[in-house]
């Protein structure tokens, strides 16, 4: 790297506001955050206006059980099996608690 390029690179580093936020500087993922995207398909508050199943009014236990069944492919699914495999058991518990709290 020539001197000019080095100066440009150093300036770029100095001008950048900060490196990426370190994962450890953030709190553990909450159920609120994990479940936030459920409503995109299942509707606000889990009340679906269309063909997607509503998930409002289901108990924490039912949601957790269903998610685990999707995760281990013991329940037929089109897309939820692919989603459920992306979450740890702890995360599934947090999602179930959050969704069951929706009124």
């Amino acid at each position: 790297m020539n001197a000019l390029a080095c100066i440009a690179a150093c300036l770029t580093v100095l001008l950048a506001v900060a490196g990426p936020a370190a994962a450890q500087s953030l709190a553990p993922t909450t159920g609120h955050t994990l479940a936030a995207t459920c409503t995109s398909c299942h509707g606000p508050g889990g009340r679906s206006p269309g063909a997607m199943p509503s998930i409002n009014g289901r108990s924490e236990a039912e949601i957790a059980k269903t998610m685990h069944e999707f995760k281990d492919d013991s329940r037929p699914a089109t897309v939820m099996n692919r989603h459920a495999k992306g979450f740890s058991d702890g995360e599934i518990a947090a999602i179930a608690k959050e969704v069951a709290s929706w009124r």
């Binding site: 409503t39 995109s40 398909c41 299942h42 509707g43 679906s48 206006p49 269309g50 063909a51 997607m52 089109t78 897309v79």
Partner: peptide
């Protein structure tokens, strides 16, 4: 589900 996705 594609149509349901849009509605939701």
């Amino acid at each position: 589900y594609a149509y349901g996705w849009y509605a939701s």
